[in-house]
Lab assay of single mutants.
Amino acid sequence: MAEQVALSRTQVCGILREELFQGDAFHQSDTHIFIIMGASGDLAKKKIYPTIWWLFRDGLLPENTFIVGYARSRLTVADIRKQSEPFFKATPEEKLKLEDFFARNSYVAGQYDDAASYQRLNSHMNALHLGSQANRLFYLALPPTVYEAVTKNIHESCMSQIGWNRIIVEKPFGRDLQSSDRLSNHISSLFREDQIYRIDHYLGKEMVQNLMVLRFANRIFGPIWNRDNIACVILTFKEPFGTEGRGGYFDEFGIIRDVMQNHLLQMLCLVAMEKPASTNSDDVRDEKVKVLKCISEVQANNVVLGQYVGNPDGEGEATKGYLDDPTVPRGSTTATFAAVVLYVENERWDGVPFILRCGKALNERKAEVRLQFHDVAGDIFHQQCKRNELVIRVQPNEAVYTKMMTKKPGMFFNPEESELDLTYGNRYKNVKLPDAYERLILDVFCGSQMHFVRSDELREAWRIFTPLLHQIELEKPKPIPYIYGSRGPTEADELMKRVGFQYEGTYKWVNP
């Protein structure tokens, strides 16, 4: 592979701008107003304001973009700056750019259920340069409990009458099928589907988006991507930290609602779906819905739930269990780990287990898709061969690698495990991989909904998990304890083995 010439960040961002501006969906010269509902909250200060700053800094926003914060707290732009700027990672050389960014910011205080507050917000936006005809993007960085009041008031008082209007809704989209349907029906009564952007930030990850290209742009994968060759698929999300004093919020939802029903299920769809007619948003989402419709409700015998306990040999936070978090209700049975087996009941995947695993306070930070292939028929190497695996590593250190057998150097035919490896950090030294939120917010500006969740996708996802969630809430089974920093409950490994996964433990990928 030829040595790549190092590029400056300015040059890299210039390439990104060229890609972005050559499309006809990006209205570079139009006025846009980006409204952050819930501007005083954690999500706004840690993710949304920093993301908008990065896009502005790199010249990736339309030229005439204004940012308006809205929340109940009586704040000023200076207050917003004070709480969000520490997350910007701005350099001293960017000081003038930073001043320009905050000059485009404003803030309006108001209630979430008060019509007069929204009329005041609308008047404020109209007073901005060309504000009355601007395109408006409303980001709901809010708890779902206020979605209905907020969307109703936005629709009645704050819509642009000339430009387009788009609304970005953060997960969780309800707690179960019934609450999700209620919320979807409410929002759909106010906005068209092409105006609604239900954001799952995992769909903005580079390697998640790469799944489609790997599958449908490489001839070698087509013939082997089926039940005849693939023994099982494992989708993993692991965090090495616990709730760390923020367990009160987590306890309301648990690990299945927080990660599995959305992030992991979306990745499953991209692995299992048929080739779409095109890369058009609805063509892709149509195929994802077909996959979900082929999955039956989760069966309790295919589920393992766990909850982390303190590690007596650990240090600091590792010595504390979930129930030691003062914000967690006493005696909570909320799971911090889950392993679930699903089956896609169609011709391509009949009988292939899709194993979804996620948890907190585990032994490493990792998100990946792992396809394990069947054993080689007619073994001539005296059971020395391990199964081939194709691994798409989402985070950290984005990579695609194939675990395969090669001859060990020497005189004899002794096979050993090795890999074919594409590590993004080595291959793409001159490429700026956008943060997931950067990519998705740019998608909203461009009107691309491919990486957002459609209402029928959402409904099918909740259909699969709601009976299990209701059973857990009714019966309150005690989750299996696992030690902070471990791989999780051993019962999860036993479940995976029972459905056909072979864990060798003899080879570990190392970032080159």
Rank of each mutant, 00 (worst) to 15 (best):
H32A: 08
R198L: 00
F26G: 13
M125E: 00
S73Q: 09
R182E: 15
A39E: 01
N126H: 14
V150S: 14
N126K: 12
H155Y: 13
F138W: 09
L7V: 10
D100I: 10
E239K: 02
R192W: 10
E252A: 11
E156D: 15
D176E: 07
Q209K: 06
K47D: 01
Q11W: 09
N226L: 05
E170Y: 01
K238G: 03
R246L: 02
F66Q: 12
P86L: 11
A141N: 04
K45A: 07
L235V: 10
F138V: 06
N185C: 13
E18W: 07
Q119R: 15
L43E: 01
S117L: 08
L121D: 03
S179Y: 02
R166L: 01
A6C: 13
N185T: 11
N126T: 14
I256R: 01
R175I: 08
L98F: 07
Y197N: 05
P50L: 04
A6E: 15
I36L: 06
L211Y: 04
L121M: 11
I67H: 05
I168K: 00
V12R: 14
L211G: 00
I36V: 11
Q119D: 15
D228S: 12
K46W: 03
F34W: 07
L16R: 10
A141M: 03
F102G: 05
E252V: 11
M125I: 12
K89Q: 13
L235I: 14
A25S: 15
A116D: 15
Y112C: 03
Y202P: 02
L98C: 08
K46M: 04
R182W: 10
G14K: 15
L98R: 05
P223Y: 08
I199H: 04
I196K: 02
R57K: 14
D200T: 05
I80W: 06
D114W: 10
Q28S: 12
V77Q: 11
T31G: 11
G245H: 12
S180N: 11
R192K: 14
C232K: 02
R219S: 09
S179N: 04
L177M: 14
A39G: 03
K238F: 02
R17L: 12
G247A: 07
D79W: 06
I224A: 09
H155W: 11
T91Y: 10
I33S: 06
M207Y: 02
F138E: 04
I255P: 05
Y118S: 05
L130Y: 14
V12Q: 13
T145D: 04
E252L: 10
M37H: 07
W225T: 01
Q209P: 04
G242N: 06
V77E: 12
A44W: 04
D58Y: 13
F34Y: 10
D176I: 04
T10F: 13
Y147G: 02
S106L: 12
E3L: 08
S106D: 08
L98W: 03
Q195I: 05
S123E: 14
A39Y: 02
F21G: 08
H124C: 13
A116V: 11
I52S: 04
W164L: 11
H186E: 13
M207W: 05
H32V: 09
T236D: 09
P144K: 01
R166H: 09
R182F: 11
N226T: 09
K89V: 10
K46D: 02
T91I: 10
G222E: 15
F87M: 09
E239M: 04
I162K: 14
P143Y: 05
R81S: 06
M125A: 13
P144W: 03
S188V: 09
D181C: 12
F34A: 06
N210V: 02
V146Y: 02
G41K: 04
M212E: 02
W225H: 05
S157K: 12
A39D: 06
Y118Q: 03
M37R: 05
V12H: 15
R136P: 01
F173Q: 05
E93D: 11
L203T: 04
D58R: 08
F191V: 06
I15Q: 08
W53R: 02
P92S: 14
R219F: 08
G131T: 12
N229M: 07
G23A: 13
Q161V: 13
L142C: 04
Y202E: 04
A116W: 11
K171E: 03
L214G: 02
D58T: 10
M37L: 10
C158I: 06
N185R: 12
T76D: 14
L75Y: 14
Q178V: 14
F250K: 08
R81D: 05
A116K: 11
L137V: 12
N210R: 04
I187R: 02
L61F: 09
G14A: 15
K95Y: 11
M159G: 09
A78I: 09
I168L: 12
Y49H: 00
Y107F: 14
N165K: 05
